[in-house]
Design a binder for these strands. Structure first.
Length: 853
RNA sequence: GCGGGCGUGGCGAAAUUGGUAGACGCGCCAGAUUUAGGUUCUGGUAUCCCAAAGAUGUGGGGGUUCAAGUCCCUCCGCCCGCACCA
């Protein structure tokens, strides 16, 4: 027997697949299509285990659907613009483009060793002008349609580097490189009007029935449609100035005790001009940056403006106006009224500032003495302390409030979305240039379409922070397309989510002169199965849904939803280790001796930490390249799929890989007894073929049925269990005295088919040895014969008063009465009945019998 | 802070969606093969109990039901996302 060298075997088959060009997808009208897509990687330099998991999952689906007779599209490409390339440029003096291209080459080579069934002819990289030129055109089309517009918004500003910082680059309120306290700055930037589709994006979630419920919920909450009212509060002493607030609880207006403005509210800025204290407070708030998580986690603080607002309903009542760090400028109107009795955050603030707490909603089972202590009351109830609204329930109260506001002119019904328009401008080099020319006389002028693409210049200095496009001596100097006067190119580039919002469309027609052709999109779209990390549950997936609608509206295609099916995978985790000094250690630096972990080098003790997401900083990483070189891709893929269900986190363990490897080797050894089998061989379920052959036939049919069912429901770990059971059955048959060489080889050939989505290389080898035609990668999935799946006798549990007391064997679909009689006749059952007569007997056919007395 | 999720043997998990808890794998134990180690093969393995019988058991507490890992309430722990990381 030849020893098993996975790399040789795998290279051989990868070469044959490539030579045979068997994974190229061609538009084939009439054949049912299936589009499988995994989220394309950012070319960071090396693949990591998360990629291996993602692509192994996708390849199972692609290979299985091919076996089921679908015309499968399974492409791969590179999400190639982004911040890390610029960081590499600053840190290592390498051009972002060079860095990215080298990374792509390295990662492509790594991916190819996995034996994934991609159509590499459709590969794309978003940093190529051939790709991004189309999104410049899209942007201009959006602009014409009013879907793109310009407005001011806030960014994190590093005052030392004079650059805009990403949230990731703000650490504890300081720039990550400069260490300087972050400021907020207002910049004029481009936005895409995603909120125009708010209702549609929300309503269509219901139809995404092959998406995980959790993702649908998250998108729903993210869009966050709320009904309520806008209320205008006139500032005392300034008749014509009012602060407008948005509230979902107009019913609690009689409980209002203050008004709070966002630190970015125009009125706050106005006050800061004359009040240094206010200016200081706003500056302090600015240090929290733009991250909503940071803002909302910060200690609640506010300062009094000295102004009072007039309560629109209560004569003579005035509410103090504060500027508070917990009010977001981006939501509603950037101002709220505080009702401490019925909002915990308002209550905390009111207690800190000694403001009145006026309960206006009481629970149904309380009376008008209901009062508030440390906890705001947010539950259902009846209004009180509310003049004419007292006695109404909350919903009726809201209606009454809105009617009162509308008739007095102090407010109006209002629907607000939490969703904000998408700011796409980035002050960075490594992105798609925004095709706009700024002219001192004509303003922002679109670059004429015949001048597209606006290519990134290569000759840039990337050795210092900031946008090199701003520093380029000539690139931005152009003539205005309208007046031919001297003008400047826009030096901002697009958010990289722009690229990932339509790449799945480009794959359908990757060499088209346009972004894609409507025909190709009509054939291949939507993506039937999309697979990727749950971290994209909202942003990327929502932007893509928006893009489809926007592109449809400007005439590119006619389809609203890009992804019919979605599967979100869990993270790949590994135990982390630290030495005595708290330094992180790589897994290969430690080993287990007895119950303790020690350093391999000198045997000193090691702290074994938690099992957590693989990350470079904690060093708990395992390099896929090393694993594939050692065990082979078949083993690595099989292990990735075998232990945890795909949506859950997976712990990478050495022992687990070893186990998968043993299983592959077991199959390898078995494969040496395989000889070409008769083409028309099959197990006849209507003939007497003997015990051993029947058992084998049953195992084969159960496996092909079970694996197909479990692939459809993403229970890949169960698929691996089916494979183990099948291999055990084939081994037993092989070892049995009545073994038949032809039957054995046939069984192995069938195994090859059902194994091929998981470990395709060894499957090809077995297929070839058993005389299979062509590639197993192109073979059809075996139909399961129901006759071989049916059991004759089934074991049924018998409970007495809900406790399991016996198991009885019954014929399948045995009549209820017979089952009941047999159960009651059972010795153990009789013993537990202790002579009592059953009051009730529940018979669940083929499952359980419960005798109640 | 807000939004979402997860929690079952020593470990990864399974449970036909309210019907026999622990399939399959890892680990461990015993035996066989082997000069030995490794490999391989066979058997065992939720806990308590010598065994049987029995009892207990799905993060904690409570509830609904003939029947709860599954449904409801509540508490605890861990993880993910929060709009300029991708």
């Amino acid at each position: 027997m030849a020893s098993f060298i996975p790399s040789e075997l795998e290279q051989k088959w990868q070469q044959k697949w490539e030579d045979g060009d068997i994974f190229s997808a061609r538009t084939a009208d009439g054949q049912k299509k299936y589009y499988v897509l995994e989220m394309f990687p950012y070319p960071s330099g090396r693949i990591h285990m998360g990629h291996v998991r993602n692509y192994a999952l996708g390849d199972v689906v692609a290979r299985f659907k091919r076996a089921m007779g679908f015309n499968v599209l399974h492409p791969m490409g590179w999400d190639a613009f982004g911040l890390p390339a610029e960081n590499a440029a600053i840190e290592r003096g390498i051009h972002p483009g060079t860095w990215t291209t080298e990374n792509i080459a390295a990662m492509r080579a790594q991916l190819k060793t996995m034996g994934l069934s991609y159509d590499w002819g459709r590969e794309l990289a978003t940093c190529m002008p051939d790709y991004y030129r189309h999104e410049q055109k899209m942007f201009l089309d959006f602009l014409k349609k009013g879907l793109a517009y310009r407005k001011e918004s806030w960014v994190n500003w590093d005052p030392v580097e004079n650059t805009v910082l990403a949230n990731e680059q703000v650490v504890d309120g300081r720039g990550w490189r400069s260490g300087a306290p972050v400021e907020r700055r207002r910049l004029s930037q481009w936005f895409l009007a995603i909120t125009r589709y708010g209702d549609e994006l929300l309503n269509a979630i219901e139809g995404l029935d092959r998406w995980p419920d959790k993702v649908r919920l998250m998108q729903q909450n993210w869009i966050g449609r709320s009904q309520g009212a806008e209320v205008d509060f006139v500032i005392d002493g300034k008749k014509d100035s009012a602060v407008t607030v948005f509230t979902t609880r107009p019913d609690t207006l009689y409980g209002a005790s203050f008004i709070a403005l966002s630190p970015q509210h125009p009125l706050a800025a106005e006050l800061a001009e004359t009040k240094p204290q206010m200016a200081d407070f706003i500056a302090e708030c600015a240090q929290l940056g733009t991250s909503e998580a940071n803002i909302e986690r910060a200690e609640k603080k506010g300062i009094f403006t000295g102004l009072y607002a007039v309560h629109p309903l209560i004569d003579g009542q005035k509410l103090p106006v504060y500027v508070a760090n917990f009010v977001l400028m981006d939501y509603g109107t950037g101002a709220v009224f505080g009702c401490p009795a019925h909002d915990q955050r308002d209550l905390d603030f009111a207690r800190a500032c000694s403001l009145p707490v006026i309960p206006v909603v009481r629970p149904h089972d309380s009376d008008d003495n209901f009062s508030i202590e440390d906890e705001a009351y947010t539950g259902p109830g009846i209004l009180f302390n509310s003049a004419g609204w007292s006695g109404l329930d909350i919903e009726a109260g809201k209606e009454a409030a809105i009617n009162a506001l509308e008739s007095s002119g102090a407010g109006r019904r209002k629907i607000t979305f939490r969703l904000r328009d998408w700011g796409v401008s980035r002050q960075r080099y490594w992105g798609c240039p925004i095709p706009i020319i700024h002219c001192p006389t004509c303003g922002a002028v679109p670059v004429p379409e015949e001048q597209l693409p606006v290519c990134l210049p290569d000759d840039v200095e990337c050795d210092s922070p900031g946008n090199p496009l701003d520093r380029h001596p000539t690139w931005s100097d152009v003539a205005c397309p309208q007046c031919a006067g001297a003008a400047k190119r826009e030096t901002d580039t697009f958010d990289t989510f722009f690229e990932s919002s339509w790449y799945f469309l480009r794959y359908t027609d990757p060499h088209a002169d346009t972004a894609f052709s409507a025909q190709a999109a009509a054939y291949w779209m939507p993506v039937d199965q999309y697979i990727g990390g749950v971290e994209h549950a909202v942003l990327h997936l929502l932007y893509s849904r928006f893009f489809m609608r926007a592109l449809s509206d400007v005439g590119y295609l006619d389809l609203a939803e890009p992804f019919a099916g979605l599967m979100t995978q869990g993270m790949v985790c590994h135990q982390s280790f630290r030495d005595e000094n708290g330094n992180w250690l790589f897994p290969e630096e430690v080993e287990k001796r007895g119950d303790n972990w020690v350093l391999k080098s000198d045997g000193r003790g090691v702290h074994a930490g938690r099992v957590e997401k693989m990350s470079k900083s904690k060093r708990n990483v395992v390099d896929p390249e090393h694993i594939i070189a050692t065990y082979g891709a078949d083993t690595a893929r099989l292990f990735m799929l075998s232990d945890s269900p795909p949506e859950r986190d997976l712990e990478w363990t050495e022992a687990g890989v070893e186990g998968a490897h043993r299983f592959i080797q077991k199959i390898w050894k078995l494969s040496w007894s395989v000889t070409p089998c008769a083409r028309d061989f099959y197990f006849d379920s209507s003939a007497e073929i003997g015990e051993a052959a029947s058992t084998l036939a049953r195992a084969l049919h159960k496996a092909s049925h079970g694996i197909a069912t479990d692939i459809e429901r993403f229970a890949f770990n169960r698929c691996v269990a089916h494979l183990h059971i099948l291999v055990t059955a084939i081994t037993d048959y092989h070892n049995s005295p009545s073994t038949d060489k032809n039957a054995f080889s046939y069984a192995m050939q069938q195994l090859a088919i059902v194994l091929s989505p998981f470990s395709p290389h060894i499957a090809e080898e077995i297929w070839q040895r058993s005389g299979g035609e062509g590639f197993v990668s192109q073979a059809g999935w075996p139909d399961a014969d129901p006759a071989w799946l049916k059991e004759d006798v089934i074991e049924v549990a018998v409970q007495v008063n809900g406790k399991m007391r016996a198991r009885i064997s019954l014929a399948v679909d045995c009549p209820r009465e017979d089952a009941e009689q047999i159960a009651l006749g059972d010795e153990a059952v009789q013993k537990h009945l202790g002579g009592q007569t059953p009051k009730r007997v529940i018979v669940v056919p083929n499952r359980i019998i419960n005798i109640v007395c």
